[in-house]
Nucleic acid binder design. Sequence first.
DNA 1: GTTAAGTTTGACTATTTGGTTAACTTTACA
DNA 2: TGTAAAGTTAACCAAATAGTCAAACTTAAC
Lengths: 201, 201
Amino acid sequence: MKYNKDTSEKILDSAIDIFQEKGFNGTRMQAIADKAKINKSLLHYYFKSKDKLFQIIIEKAVKLFIPRVLKVINVEGDIFQMIRDFVSAYIDMLRKNPHIPSFIINEINNNPERLLKLIKSSGFNVDFVKVKIQEDIDKGIIRDISPEHLLLNTLSLCIFPLVAKPMVVGIILNGEEDKFEKLLDERKKVVANFIIDSIKI
Amino acid sequence: MKYNKDTSEKILDSAIDIFQEKGFNGTRMQAIADKAKINKSLLHYYFKSKDKLFQIIIEKAVKLFIPRVLKVINVEGDIFQMIRDFVSAYIDMLRKNPHIPSFIINEINNNPERLLKLIKSSGFNVDFVKVKIQEDIDKGIIRDISPEHLLLNTLSLCIFPLVAKPMVVGIILNGEEDKFEKLLDERKKVVANFIIDSIKI
DNA sequence: GTTAAGTTTGACTATTTGGTTAACTTTACA
DNA sequence: TGTAAAGTTAACCAAATAGTCAAACTTAAC
């Protein structure tokens, strides 16, 4: 027998929650152990050190996320429908993992190389989207706009509100927290329309 | 004599840099002292504790930032010009303080109340912008869109690329870091046009 | 049942780090 | 110029926390 799958799963589940919520420096090994209801020594038995555990958590988060993102991009059909589908699916995905965006933002600012290496090694690439955009510009389906900017705009509109949730609630929604979920729901349509209205001819 | 202005300035200057870069938990008092080239005890002599120092840093950052933001919003004239001016000035402002956006994002996710209280107590409020947007919708100058969403879209498009810089470089610019500054420059026009194209009638 | 390998535990250690203290130096000014 | 207050320093302290270890326990194989 080599390693108890159950225990290491419990550790990973707890660790991902706490790292995502508190960041690397804010996370206590004891807190992970408590949440997993195991002895703290087991963390080291299974994962050697805090750094190693964190590394594995990041890797899992990225590898879980990237295929999902790619899956909701469908460049085969109508670009307007592609935008609607992507925005809707992406916002839904982010809502289900509300801590992931700020976790990644945080991590990427602390250690850009590590995360970038990971992303690249996972074969993630958006060139096919850029190509699709450029094709539709050439065909006269959408107005002339840099594919890079259009892509970045789309991601910004989807991701930022979740990353900045407390600020959105505090400043834009005047503290009415309960309106946030409604706002996100609306955004699935609003954002798609906002983009489409901007690029259609 | 009551307190050496020079020393406390040096401390604040160093502290703001390090807190912004590393966050509260990632910051070491010793690191602040080293950067300021003073003895660590002086931090406590002048600011009592890490928490107090942090509080003051946030307060300074917020009080410096908010008036600048408000200053570049001019609701008196043409809404399209208002958008152009705001986007351009805001992106420039963020570029000059590249750590501020991710610092705020992090901070507000770790301890929402603290930062929000400060922002609110400073009298920051965006209702006047919402009113202006609604007026121009009613006048038929721009299409019907929720003021909250338009505001949030604008902020998302300006702030997100800076918060996620390493990801933008890695994924959208295929690792060509030197293109990032050019991208930001372009964005001053691209984002304004993107918004205007979307809301004009 | 015995054994050996894998797993779990609590007590312990080393280090990091925010904070204190007391001695020293400089400055203001009577 | 004497002295008291302000400013500065190094040495130290206590708490927090990552990491270690040996003993105890569990499981599976024979």
